[in-house]
Design a binder for these strands. Sequence first.
RNA 1: GCGCCAGUAGCUCAGGUGGAUAGAGCAACAGCCUUCUAAGCUGUGGGUCGGAGGUUCGAGUCCUCCCUGGCGCGCCA
Length: 547
Amino acid sequence: MSTRDLIRAALIDAARGLGAPAPIDPVLERPRDSAHGEWATNVAMTLARPLRRKPADIARDLVAALDLAAAGVERVEIAGPGFINFHVAVGTTAGALRDILTLGSRFGAADTGGGCPVNIEFVSANPTGPLHVGHGRQAALGDAIAALLETTGWRVSREYYYNDAGVQIMNLGRSVQVRLAQLDGRDVPIPEGGYHGEYILEIAQRYRDAHPDDPRGADLDVITRFAVAALRREQDLDLQAFGVQFDTYFLESSLYTEGQVDETVRALMAAGQTYERDGALWLRTTHFGDDKDRVMRKRDGTYTYFVPDVAYHVTKWRRGFARAINVQGSDHHSTVTRVRAGLQALGVGIPEGYPEYVLHQLVTVMRAGEEVKISKRAGSYVTVRDLIDEVGRDAVRYFFLMRKGDSQLVFDIDLARTQSEENPVYYIQMAHARMAGIFRVGGIDPASVRADGVDFDALAEPEEQELIKALLDLPSVIAGAALALEPHRVAGYLHETARLAHLWYHKHHVLNEPERLMSARLVLARAAQIVLRNALTILGIRAPDRM
RNA sequence: GCGCCAGUAGCUCAGGUGGAUAGAGCAACAGCCUUCUAAGCUGUGGGUCGGAGGUUCGAGUCCUCCCUGGCGCGCCA
C-alpha cells in the first residue's frame, strides 16, 4: 500500500470516528508549495458543513486520532483555514522508487478499464487528398488517447472510417479525368467541387502510364478507383511516417452493400420516430435534444449523410464496443447531437452519451511570424507530410499534444525545428538521454539496477525529493488524463518532470560518488529514465538513449 | 438570431473535476562549462485571470447576463 493510500485509509477511519456521514472520500493532493509537506487534504473543510463544526476543530480531532508513524509520516500539521499537511520521511518517499524499478514499462498502468472493449475512431479522412494538419492533430490525439486507455486497462481498437462512394469521390474521379484531358491537349476546366492540388496531376500522369489503353481518360469508374487507391496508399504512408496504426478500416460503402443503412431506416420508422413531409422522410431529432428535426431521406430518394453515420455507430455498438470515442475537428460538432439522437431514437438501449466525442479546434501553422496556408502538392492546405518532413515525427506529435484539444493551436515550425533548449521536445528527450548517459559512461546495464539494499535516506537533497515526488505521480497523471481523454496533461507532466531531472542532473553527481550515495542515485536515475520513457511512449514519442 | 469552443504575463499556453502566495515556455536582461551531454543550469523583471453580478469557509475554476474571437447552424458531406 502506498503512503498516500495509508494516509487516506487512516483519515477515513478517523472521520468515521467523528461521526462523519458515509461516504467519506478524502482528497489527497500534492501541495503546490513543498513546505506544506508531501500530501495535504482539505477533508476537515468539506466535513465542516455536515458536522456543523469549525474546520480547524475537526482538523485537530482528526489529527489526534491519526497514527501514521508506521506509514512513514513524520509530522502532521494543521495549516491555513483547515488543511492537514503530512510530512513524509525522506526515505519513505524515496523507497517508493522500488515500485518503479519493479514495474518497469508497466509503471503507470492500471486496470481501470477491466478489459472492456473501446473503439476509437480518428483521422477518417476521405481518400480525396493528402492528410492535412487537422488530420495530423487527430492522429496524434487519437493515438495518444488510445494509448492512455490501453495503459489503464481498456481493450482498444483503433478505427478509420472512410467514405469511398459519395459525391466527393465522384468529384475526385472527375478531377483526375479533367487532368487527363488536359494532358491530352484539350482545354477542359476543373469541375465545380473538384480538386485542384498538384497531386491530382500526378495521379493523372500515373494513370496514363498504367493505362496506355485509355490515354484520353474515357473510363471514369476505372479512373476513380485508381485515384482512390493511389490516395489511400499515400495516406497510409503518411500515417506510417507518423507512427500510427489502425486495427480496422471501415468502408462507408459496406453499410449500403450489407443493408445496414436500410435496416436502420426501417428500425427508426418502426420505432415511430419518423414522419413524411414535403416528399421527404424526417427524423424527430427534436425529441432527443436537437433544435430542429432532420431529413433522413431526401425527395430524390437518397439519404442524407447522417443516416449512414447512425448505421455505422449501430455497428460499433453491435460489435461489442461499450464505449466508442470519436476524435474530430470542432467543425463537426453539429453531428454530435444528430448521431446520438439517431441512436436514441432506435430505442435499443444504447447509452445517451454514446458515442463520446473529442473535438479539437483548428490548427494554424506559423513560419517566420507568418501564417502558412498552402503547400505545393495539396494547393489549398498544409499537409501532415510537410510538417513531418520539416520538423520530424516526434516534434509534430508533441506539438499537437501539448495543448488542450479545446484550444486553437498555433504550430510554430521555427520553434519545432530548433534543436535546443527552446524546443520542449528536445528538452524532454534530452532528459531521458542524460539518464541513459549515466549508465553508458558508468558501464552499467540500466536493467541490472536493483533497489534491494539501497539506503533511500541518502536521497535527501531537495532536488532529489522533488524529482522523486514527480516520478511517483505518473500513475495518477495517467489515470486523470485517461479519464478526461486529455493527453496534453501527460505532455505538461513530461515537461515538468524533465525540468526536475535536468535540475537534479546538473546539481548532483551520480558516478564516482561514495557507494551508499551512488547506488541510491543510480536507482533514481533509472526510475527517471523509466518514467520519462513510459510517458513519452504514451504520446507516441521516442525516448532516445543519446542525442 | 441560435448552438459549441475559447478569452490568464509582450507572445504561445498550463492551471488533474472549487483550495493555501495564479504557473511554464518563448521573448528581454544578468550570470554559470577541469567531473555522468552547455542540446544544460541559475537569477531578475513582467498579471484589473475579457467585464459585471451571484453561489460559500474559499472562485481563474461553478451559475446568470454582457463583450470579443474561432467554428457550426442545408432535402451538401
